[in-house]
């Protein structure tokens, strides 16, 4: 069986823990071939190696630069070089990369370097059969979630970026054989660099794109997210926002849901004081269950909902939060 290269999410290793999207990729990789995790950085951080093996990694390529350069300080180009060298060496059945700004850039460069086809933002990947010459078939959601498209790569190595929540991570003990790999990074790959970084402080809530429940607030909050956040905490949700709320400076951009923010597909999405513009829908329309609270009964968001309340969110949410807290006793 061929190897399937899985790029370990770079956010993973900050505290030595492997992120959920990476575990999802390993689970998907196992459908297609033998998962090999590509870990850029120090494998001895935390329990990364054990976790990767526990979720099916047969091999773990621990990559460092031959001249000791810290690859992680140099954006995407060196990471794409590393993967290109591994593709050449292993002839994998596919390369799976977490979708997201960085992942997609790495994938784009890798596709050019290896003269391969690229599919981004897959929400499902299934093994191919004879009719697809064995190449995996991906599912994507396009045009603001109004179409579902199945596609595959027909040239070179299939390079696929996969969205979070595309599979349930399943444990499966792999050999987890660590292979240290030093690679040379070209000078041109080092030319763009991060010169300053100001980490955001953790909210303690679930990660927006990975959460099972997302509670969002829009312009209708009037800038006061207290009720939205308290409700989110009562049901263990991540907090999101519309662009109007982000543009007003009420929430950081990383919380924006929509075309130019995050696409989320949780089990439950609760939109509060959000009208439901097409650009917002693009980021939440594929959620399993949609709920809205809006004081305008003609707000377009109500066309999408499974359940809606026409009312003032500053009244409805605190009352609902109180009742939930009481029920939980």
């Amino acid at each position: 069986m061929s190897e399937v290269l899985v790029l370990v999410d770079s956010n993973s290793l900050v505290d030595g823990k492997v992120s959920k999207p990476t575990l999802e990729l390993l689970t998907i990789a196992r459908r297609i071939g033998e998962p090999s995790a590509v870990l850029i950085g120090d494998p001895s951080t935390g329990s990364a190696v054990e976790t990767l093996a526990a979720y099916g990694a047969e091999k773990i390529y621990a990559v460092s630069a031959s001249d000791g350069t810290d690859i992680t300080g140099y954006l995407v180009a060196p990471k794409a070089e590393v993967l290109a060298q591994l593709v050449e060496r292993t002839g994998p059945a596919a390369v799976l990369i977490p979708s997201g700004g960085e992942g997609k850039e790495i994938a784009g460069r890798l596709a050019v370097k290896t003269d391969s086809g690229l599919i981004t933002d897959a929400v499902d990947v299934q093994p191919g059969d004879d009719s697809t010459r064995g190449t995996p078939v991906t599912t994507q959601s396009v045009f603001a979630g109004s179409y579902t498209v199945r596609a595959r790569v027909t040239h070179g190595t299939p390079i696929i970026t996969v969205k979070p929540n595309s599979a349930a991570p399943a444990q499966h003990q792999g050999a987890g054989a660590v292979e240290e790999l030093t690679v040379t990074i070209s000078e041109s790959a080092k030319t763009a660099k991060i010169t300053a970084s100001e980490p955001r402080k953790a909210s303690g809530r679930p990660e927006l794109t990975e959460a099972a429940i997302v509670v969002s607030g829009g312009r209708g909050t009037g800038g006061d997210f207290t009720a939205v956040e308290a409700f989110a905490d009562a049901i263990g949700a991540a907090v999101g926002a519309s662009r109007a709320a982000v543009d007003s400076g009420w929430m950081p951009h990383a919380f924006q849901v929509g075309q130019t923010g995050k696409t989320v597909s949780p089990q439950l999405y609760v939109a509060n004081g959000i009208s439901g513009a097409i650009q917002h829908r693009a980021g939440m329309q594929t959620s399993k269950t949609i709920v809205a609270v809006n004081k305008d009964d003609e707000a377009p968001i109500f066309e999408l909902v499974d359940f809606g309340v026409v009312g003032d969110l500053q009244k409805v949410l605190p009352a609902a939060t109180e009742e939930i807290t009481k029920r939980k006793g």
Binding site: V291, V293, D297, F302, V305, F307, G308, V309, V310, G311, D312, K315, V316, L317, A319, A320, E323, I324, R327
Partner: peptide
């Protein structure tokens, strides 16, 4: 879609 008459909306939501 329900109207929040006299706080009925929150209860229906829960």
């Amino acid at each position: 879609v329900v109207a929040d008459d006299d706080g009925a909306g929150a209860h229906a939501l829960v």
